[in-house]
Design a protein around this nucleic acid. Sequence first.
DNA 1: CAGTTAAACAAACATTTGTTTGGTTAATAT
DNA 2: ATATTAACCAAACAAATGTTTGTTTAACTG
Lengths: 205, 205
Amino acid sequence: MDGQTALDTDAARPRVNNRRAGILNAAAYRFRRQGYAATTMRDIASDAGMLAGSLYYHFKSKTALLIAVHEEGVRRIADAVDSAVIAADPADPWKRLEAALAAHLNSLLDGGDYAQVVIRDLPADEPELRATLIKLRDDYEDRFRALVDALPLSNKQDAGWLRLILLGAANWSKTWYRPDGTPPAEIAAHFIRIVKNGETPGSTT
Amino acid sequence: MDGQTALDTDAARPRVNNRRAGILNAAAYRFRRQGYAATTMRDIASDAGMLAGSLYYHFKSKTALLIAVHEEGVRRIADAVDSAVIAADPADPWKRLEAALAAHLNSLLDGGDYAQVVIRDLPADEPELRATLIKLRDDYEDRFRALVDALPLSNKQDAGWLRLILLGAANWSKTWYRPDGTPPAEIAAHFIRIVKNGETPGSTT
DNA sequence: CAGTTAAACAAACATTTGTTTGGTTAATAT
DNA sequence: ATATTAACCAAACAAATGTTTGTTTAACTG
């Protein structure tokens, strides 16, 4: 029995916590498709290839699972946005905002399940849990606050409205987006162009 | 087997179905606050002043209750928008759209619970139910399709984007709106102004 | 009055829920 | 080899779930 070398046991598979990612993936998948309340621990366990009780070796509760998915989701979408902003032209604040919005949309629409869970409406059961999740999202959205504040606006007071319009329109896109339709980057370009130039006839594009 | 087709909205017989509205209100209240999956029939029954089983005299299932709330919600918000558009200046298509958006926002933010349930993310459990609810909302949103198509746009192709931006930003407002903040009508005015005139310096008309 | 019936109750139903517990396996370390 | 421990299973748990059933109450009608 012990004659076999450790060739079949993947060396890149650490013995400790190597199933955590798989469980989190399954949870994110289910939370996105069914929502938190409608997802059962047995759903998640089944997708992860184990029994419901076994999940409690890795996570102490269903709530902890939701928080972990949120944290991972915020981390991913924030990284994507930060990278896009860094790669964008530092001299063009509109382009920087567009790059951030495109990354946000891409994470939301063509990305995995995590980002969708972050954006989706939060469960209102436990106020404490709700506060935790809202804070996670707010910290992320601060990026857009800074990007919008850097714009040369005709009315500086509009920075807040601009942020709300763009993030709202973007977050709502998951209800009408189709993978065979306009890609996320183009959606972002349209959004930015419209709020930047307006739709009044005669405005130069 | 006399199939009674009594109008449930008929108030001529107070004794018949006079609790329907109360039950629907309770359901809308709970669905808005907790979401559909997290709301129990006992929650609704408790708010309506009866036991869970008694609900089944008025509605055949929890699903039927959700559909009824959606139908009532769409009816209310559609009526509000239609009235606002009729009262608006027929010669100014931008004002007409703004009036519709203001009515939409008002129903969503300062209105009752029904509109929020319509807007909230739909349960994905039963595809058939989901299709029913989506169709209800789509029929309502057709109003905005017509209003946007009537605009004198610098780029006619942008009608679709304009509708998506405005409805998206509006529907997302429930996540950041505070009753002591900017009132719905002013929010609508800001949204319209920005997409109409743009934010490029010097474009103030 | 009796007869009918809308409306609700009281109690149970069979599942499903999140979670706990104790035991089992197999890899690792000593 | 022995001990340890990460990881999981198998089974149960109490509570909660949507729904059904038989019965009761009270208002209307003839």
